[in-house]
Design a protein around this nucleic acid. Structure first.
Lengths: 294, 294
DNA sequence: CTAAAATGTACTCGATTCGAGTATAAATGG
DNA sequence: CCATTTATACTCGAATCGAGTACATTTTAG
């Protein structure tokens, strides 16, 4: 058994939230995710990537989590060619406070929804692309009961609820149906980068429900509305304000700083800070999503 | 920037449940997990590993999920040496029905709880090793409020509930406290294999709560008690029978076969089968854990 | 044969959670 | 001043969940 020697590559999905938009750091005019070779000199995968990101962007990375490891042929289902050496790619999800380093090298932060416009359900109406997409999917699924069921489930049709976590599954369904190269249905990326981004969004949308990672995206002190807007940006959902606040203080994840917000319109709000002391004790409760507007 | 060329290795945590014990396939007298080099000839990581396992064990793998990718220096915190070439190891969790291939090559299936005896909370009493372990941990944490809080949280002391999912975190705490090499506190494994096993157990214990993976471990048709015993074996918890059954039929994951069980003592039970048709529709409900006995 | 043990099945009850809605208070901007 | 925006405190009913009770049916021990 000859063991394959494969070069390893690290790929980062760096996410920040600004102006109520969840954003991802991109290169080459928004067409590629940042990536680089894995250096033998690094202490570990995790710390190697951390050093590399901070050097490249000037942003400290608050949270870094491994997502998935691909071999080349896994990555782009379109290419049928047989490559002799398979590159191994390890993808990571990183959360940064974009405002931390305003003066540093300006990378291009793009909204997630530029690539997945159908995933933003915050407005009063569902995204304008959705009817077109589901129409095309219905035509594609016609006759196959299993496919119809899958479309209904993934896109919340026929009484089924919209599940915001299924970003990757929806993208893969659209890929099967041949819809992902339609420019009106989201901006393209090089290779399989858009699929990797979908993986990261899925993971993060799941994670905010049972882990306090949101706070890695917020400044030191914040109002409860800021917190809610951030969760809404990530999940792409509109949340019920009173219930959201009820959950937050039931979980005792935050404490008042004593200060009040200023500079905004409307009544000033109390400022809060995250209580990292009980991080582990609250790990498995975390932020849940009390939805509203069906 | 010279890119490091690293050989990649696949490591498998193969799990089955027999005689109400969750088991893992091991080599070398229970000291190692099966592993092998990643072949360039394989179509993908996933399918490569699947072929390899089925060839080695004769067991078809029902479910296969990637766990985590390590670089060598990540893997064994004990070794301080600087290796020039870092091996990349990709670990997978696989579920098999052990009874499927009784005549094949006989690998050694060991109970999880041989390696983590403190994780089995099914009996009337908690595991006999626990008082010793928590005593030693308390001595280790003495004086450090944060450490004490962590011990309490991870081991369910001082009114905190036992959380069965935190297998890896408990193992790592015990590692920090220098308890993992005590033979009374579980059998040893080579290198970091025991830590990788803990990762797999944590993942599986979390997964059975929101995904119907349990059925990959059961025969085609089964009784509700068999299903409950399997979940109990994996979670290491004792469940409340009436509530367990209530949840199962609320979720409509199973249907009656019309047959009855035979050969066992007690009243014969109805046999059920899994309904894979609605797999996706139920993905995010799955089997939850209605505990009993505080 | 009979009783005990093991297994299966159907209920009830109360606490908690959760979605949804209502009401009121405090600031800003024409 | 009044419309608008934001903050905060409640209420209500449905669904879920932990816990417990009761009873049925079969095997096995004695």
């Amino acid at each position: 058994m000859p063991s394959g020697l494969a070069p390893a590559e690290l790929i980062a999905i760096l996410t920040a939230v600004t102006d109520d938009q969840p954003r991802v750091m991109t290169l080459r005019g928004g067409e590629a995710l940042p990536s680089g070779p894995f250096e033998s000199s690094h202490r570990s995968l995790q710390s190697g990537l951390r050093d590399w990101i901070e050097a490249q962007t000037g942003h400290p990375v608050g949270y870094l989590e491994q997502l998935y490891t691909f071999a080349d042929k896994d990555r782009d289902p379109r290419s049928e060619e047989v490559t002799s050496s398979q590159r191994i790619s390890i993808s990571y999800l990183g959360l940064v406070r974009e405002q931390d380093a305003p003066g540093a090298r300006r990378p291009t932060w793009r909204s997630w929804y530029r690539y997945f416009p159908w995933e933003d359900h915050r407005g009063d109406h569902s995204p304008k692309e959705l009817p077109l997409i589901t129409g095309r999917l219905a035509a594609w699924a016609k006759g196959d009961a299993l496919k119809i069921q899958r479309v209904d489930y993934l896109f919340g049709l026929n009484g089924k609820p919209w599940n915001e976590e299924l970003v990757l599954q929806r993208y893969e369904l659209m890929y099967e149906a041949g819809l992902v190269d339609t420019p009106e249905f989201g901006a393209p990326m090089a290779g399989d980068n858009r699929r990797i981004l979908a993986t990261g969004i899925s993971r993060l949308r799941a994670k905010i429900k049972y882990s306090p990672v949101v706070f890695e995206l917020l400044p030191e002190s914040f109002t409860l509305l800021q917190l809610q807007r951030t969760v809404e940006a990530l999940s792409g959902l509109h949340l019920h304000k009173p219930n959201f606040r009820r959950q937050i203080d039931q979980q005792e994840l935050v404490e008042e700083t004593g200060e009040m917000s200023s500079g905004t319109s409307g009544r000033p709000a109390r400022l809060f800070r995250y209580r990292p002391a009980i991080l582990e004790a609250r790990m498995l409760s975390g932020v849940r999503l009390p939805l509203s507007r069906p």
